[in-house]
Design a protein around this nucleic acid. Structure first.
Lengths: 254, 254
DNA sequence: GAACTACGTTCAGTTACTTGGAACAGGTAT
DNA sequence: ATACCTGTTCCAAGTAACTGAACGTAGTTC
């Protein structure tokens, strides 16, 4: 993860800082951006007009916004992953059968990234969407991935100090996490009991290649009131595990 | 569309040239990229290591590939468009009812960009996916958008010379296009008779705001053998028009 | 097993390019 | 009409991107 560039191209970094700020601010004008990033207006203007010329951002009147062109690159990257093609229809089916929200997540650069979401009949609305990056230790999906990653990668990703805690139930220390991961390995699946979002529970299972390499994870999320007792502890885990299994088989024979 | 930056930031342009080359070459190493872009290896190396550090590209062994991080920006841009939220479930329904491939397209910077695709039971596999950019004049979706754009924008987008022709049936001149667009305006929908892809037909309808501004278009695509006669000329257009209408209503009252 | 090739990586001098202040233009509110 | 926003242009100055040669490391061939 450290992967520090020896001769970093600062202009490239600034370019993405600008695009990211545009996302964070939900679009804005030259002056506002300049204040936000503490750079001269003229500099920001040069970047923005260049990005617009290259069709990566859009200008409407006096406000600039992130352009849809990034979707081309992002969707391309997603399509390159065979797990997406294969897992997508299965996640769709899982969502339909359970009526809840089905998810597909992979790990990249130490973060979890949602590749797909499928909405069942009664699916809750959550703050995550395709492309959203989340901390691995705070979700069922992430924990089922961490559980099958080599120790040195887990070290890189979560470190050894305090872990960020989106809710009070989130695992807070490396030791606690280690216990949870051990349990995930023995049970075969991971759960999230309001650890990322109040009121939301989740059951996730890892997707592994035949050589044990972890490729991603699938899950079902729903409101606490519907995710309880036997359904949350038996029925749903079995459904999720089966889905993960089908995906693994399809990947092996393709 | 001209929108030429007065003081373009060349480094920003190079940055995206590199990412785009990475996409075009489906991932590659430093030397190959350097040859492709005719830049020194060391320069390419600086950019690649910076992009990797910023987590926008991924390095596996000796090859670099477009990273999934672009999906965050792209999906964000898509989610910002209210048309996406509203049209998505309707396109899903349209695809399920027809069993074919349903599409949602918008215009940005003069190109058509697919925001969503839904696969019905018998949906064909095509070369387009979410994020793909296409020439507006070569698709039913694009033509239904062009038909409702002010003339000066059409001028900017298609110009007055020869138009690129993916297949021999594609409209080739501005004059021909103008006739077709007039027909689209009177009929209310557009068709694509193997104009973009051999063997593929398509019916599309525009989505307009109450003030007449064009927001995007929906369509159904399928193989020629299933898209014929009354179905292609009556039934399907009606279904597509109805879907577009529902979307327009939902947008107005939201 | 050594020599060769192909690759990514590092380094430091040079030059081109980003930078940013100040001045301009266009609009809106006072 | 004036003041105060906005975004935009310009050019001078000095930083930081560029580059080609040298290095390190595999992998391949003889």
């Amino acid at each position: 993860m450290p992967e520090k560039a020896k001769n970093p191209v600062k202009t490239t970094m600034t370019t993405f800082a600008i695009v990211e700020a545009l996302q964070e601010l939900d679009g804005c004008g030259v002056t506002e951006l300049a204040n936000h990033l503490e750079l001269p207006k003229s500099t920001i203007h040069n970047y923005l007009s260049t990005l617009e010329q290259e069709e990566y951002i859009k200008k409407e009147g006096t406000t600039y916004t992130v352009g849809i062109r990034f979707l081309e690159l992002g969707a391309y990257a997603r399509n390159c992953m065979q797990i997406y093609d294969i897992a997508k229809p299965e996640v769709d089916r899982l969502a339909e059968e359970t009526g809840e929200l089905g998810n597909l997540l992979i790990e990249e650069h130490g973060h979890g990234v949602y590749l797909h979401q499928a909405r069942g009949e009664r699916a809750v609305r959550v703050d995550s969407y395709v492309g959203t990056r989340v901390d691995l230790h705070a979700t069922a999906l992430g924990k089922s991935i961490l559980a099958h990653l080599p120790t040195h990668r887990v070290d890189e990703i979560v470190g050894h100090g305090e872990l960020p805690q989106p809710t009070e139930r989130t695992v807070g220390t490396r030791e606690e996490l280690e216990e949870v991961l051990e349990e995930v390995r023995t049970r075969g699946y991971a759960t999230d009991n309001e650890e990322r979002l109040e009121g939301l529970r989740c059951v996730a299972a890892p997707i592994q290649a035949t050589d044990g390499r972890i490729l991603g994870a699938v899950s079902v999320s729903g409101p606490v009131n519907r995710m309880q007792d036997d359904y949350f502890e038996e029925e749903l885990p079995n459904q999720v595990l089966e889905t993960a299994n089908v995906i693994e088989l399809n990947i092996t024979y393709s």
